[in-house]
Design a protein around this nucleic acid. Sequence first.
DNA 1: ATTGCTTTGGACATATTGTCCATTCTAGAT
DNA 2: ATCTAGAATGGACAATATGTCCAAAGCAAT
Lengths: 206, 206
Amino acid sequence: MRAWAPACQAVALLLGPYAEVVLHDPDTDRILAIWNPMSARSPGDPSLLGDLNALDLSARDVFGPYEKLLADGRRLTSVTAILRDPDGKASAVLCINLDRTPLEQAAALLTAFGAPTASRPEQLFEQDWYERVQQLVGTYVRECSRPVERLTRADRLAVLARLEAARVFDVRRATPVVARALRVSRSTVYGLRAELKAPDRKDQTR
Amino acid sequence: MRAWAPACQAVALLLGPYAEVVLHDPDTDRILAIWNPMSARSPGDPSLLGDLNALDLSARDVFGPYEKLLADGRRLTSVTAILRDPDGKASAVLCINLDRTPLEQAAALLTAFGAPTASRPEQLFEQDWYERVQQLVGTYVRECSRPVERLTRADRLAVLARLEAARVFDVRRATPVVARALRVSRSTVYGLRAELKAPDRKDQTR
DNA sequence: ATTGCTTTGGACATATTGTCCATTCTAGAT
DNA sequence: ATCTAGAATGGACAATATGTCCAAAGCAAT
């Protein structure tokens, strides 16, 4: 039923990957819609609501929270709501399944681990990105036992890839430093770097 | 609107004391119903939805998740959904506000605990300077248990000193990020930063 | 020497960073 | 509540830094 979709989507969105929202059709016993499916179910599949139908639908509209167990061991907390038309007819059944394991792990860790007072936000921020450049280049040079000036084009590409991976270029003014370390011009660094990003074509049709 | 109540109640029930579910009347701009109120609002009170009405209600039905901040410093994650009648008319606006602080505390502890100190030869370069900014600001905020927006000038100076010490500004594009994290303008960041460097004189005789 | 690459300096086009300042805000004091 | 000094803001602008391009060299293998 289209009317409920926004509400369902909102819930699914809010609870991120840990909640599954399912809308069932109580007449056909099939899934109408599903958000963040945790098992591989999709609209049209049988609901497998089974015992729910045994519940007295007229007595209450909201059931739960109760616990479910997934085959893979995940512990779910579920709630169910009967959604009614303006005329009172049950037009859909809403189930929200919340995966509790991540929270439980956190809680377990928390209780198991006394009171760790402060965290360790220490700055291994790497003051010395400059050193790091020297280090990465130096290491490579040693690896292929060849001085910086005798590095082949491919070598330079490789070194740049490492520097790139180390996020060196996120640092201000890094490019000239790298160029110098590689005994190469600034232009060349940009050129090679572009090549890394666009592995094949020589033409820069951008 | 009676039709939505079960769904709202179900969500409120599932998310326990940490989620507030509010149903607004888009016509009168008042609260229709509210579950688990976090602030002292009740049905009939004005919605204070303000800017929401400015949103193009016809464009989308679901907004968010976006972040809200309570005066007392609690961090909320909110989603909003436009609920429509069978004939398409927006009959209600659903807001779910989830208090994230308990989760954040758990998560913070978790990440702090998970930090495997050693064995990080490569990229201790801190890919994640962005995280680091959030982290440093967040820590400070927690230390003085005051939301970012309520930080005093002196506080901001202190935070900036830490960021400076962590060499955050060596990273490209860091300033705007910091400004945003501090909920302050770019200009202000530069201003405060200048102040840090020249502790006394107001004139910039350099 | 000629060919088919790559590198190089620069010139330029963009983007980012810093400065400045007229206005707008805000926290206190009145 | 109103006023006021100091602070923050947004936007213009200047200064730098980053990227692109390309014509003019290098350079190695014919």
